[in-house]
């Protein structure tokens, strides 16, 4: 495809949008609305996901290692640190632990017992909560490790909730995505219908399908992107308002989806352009073969 053809495609696409202003407006608003709903749902799902994750991340593995001095347990600590998925270690202050232990059990004959009979307590932070069980198992095999507490039940329950949230949100986004593509394909079919004479004439004078298709696909991409920008404005401004209100009402504090505005804009525009392109391709295919 030569430079002139590219120029033609771009020119035709924008002429098409200008000449069919009302249809273009209808497509853009449809796309904006659909993407707005889709985006709202996706952001809410992300926020829910993040919220559950933030609770889970408070869980860590407590490891008790036998040893008189810190130097004794150093090899074990090194090995734990080298396990993939382990984020950080912190060794608890043994003196404090000893005081707490004595306080908890006043009947214990502590006089004369040195504090270093207690094992070292180490808190291991894990990056992915679903990896807690295997990591704990691996730690157990390390020499010198006395006991490993992983508060498994709680983690499992939270992970189960997270799983449900994930499946539901993927399902929801999937359904909305298909619906959006369908609505957009219909909107583009209407613009094509409005231009059927133009397309017919192009076919009769011997324009290749490529030549007929490309300006229309570009038109779909432009309309999709513009719709996405409108949806983005809606989400960015609306999102700020909603989170400001939510902060005041909901006791859990500020919830964020963790998506920043630039990411959101990029994501929406790519999605809009993609949907516009696919929507017009599908419609044109049907149209050209009629």
């Amino acid at each position: 495809m030569g430079l002139r053809s590219i120029e033609y495609v771009i020119q035709e696409a924008f002429t098409g949008i200008r000449r069919n202003g009302l249809m273009a407006f209808a497509s853009v608003s449809t796309i904006a609305l659909s993407l707005g709903v889709l985006g709202t749902f996706a952001l809410l799902a992300l926020a829910a996901n993040r919220f559950v994750l933030s609770r889970v991340n408070q869980f860590e593995i407590a490891v008790f290692i036998e040893g008189k001095t810190l130097a004794d347990i150093k090899p074990a600590l090194e090995r734990i640190r080298s396990i993939p998925g382990v984020e950080s270690l912190s060794v608890r202050d043994r003196m404090k632990e000893w005081e707490a232990f004595k306080r908890d059990r006043p009947d214990f004959e502590s006089a004369g017992v040195p504090f270093d009979v207690l094992p070292f307590a180490v808190d291991v932070k894990v990056s992915d909560p679903s990896r807690i069980a295997p990591i704990a198992a691996e730690i157990r095999t390390i020499k010198g490790v006395d006991r490993v507490n992983e508060s498994r039940e709680l983690v499992d329950r939270v992970l189960a909730v997270l799983q449900v949230v994930r499946v539901l949100s993927i399902l929801g986004v999937g359904v909305l995505l298909i619906t959006t593509a369908f609505i957009i394909s219909n909107a583009i079919r209407l613009t094509l219908y409005a231009r059927r004479l133009e397309i017919k004439i192009m076919q009769l004078v011997g324009a290749t399908n490529q030549f007929i298709r490309l300006p229309l696909v570009l038109e779909g991409i432009v309309l999709g992107s513009v719709g996405a920008v409108v949806a983005w404005l809606f989400l960015a401004l609306g999102g700020r308002y909603v989170s400001a209100v939510a902060e005041k009402i909901v006791f859990i504090g500020r919830i964020s989806s963790g998506v920043d505005r630039a990411e959101l804009a990029l994501g929406l525009v790519i999605l809009g352009a993609l949907i516009g392109a696919v929507g017009s391709l599908v419609s044109i295919r049907r149209f050209l073969h009629d």
Binding site: Y8, E12, R19, I201, V205, G206, A207, T208
Partner: peptide
């Protein structure tokens, strides 16, 4: 089958543009 929103000149030019003429 003339395009109503194009004038005569544009209608003819359209048929040539559609097959990539200079």
């Amino acid at each position: 089958k003339l395009l109503p929103q194009k004038n005569v000149w544009e209608n003819l030019a359209f048929a040539m543009r559609a097959i990539g003429k200079h």
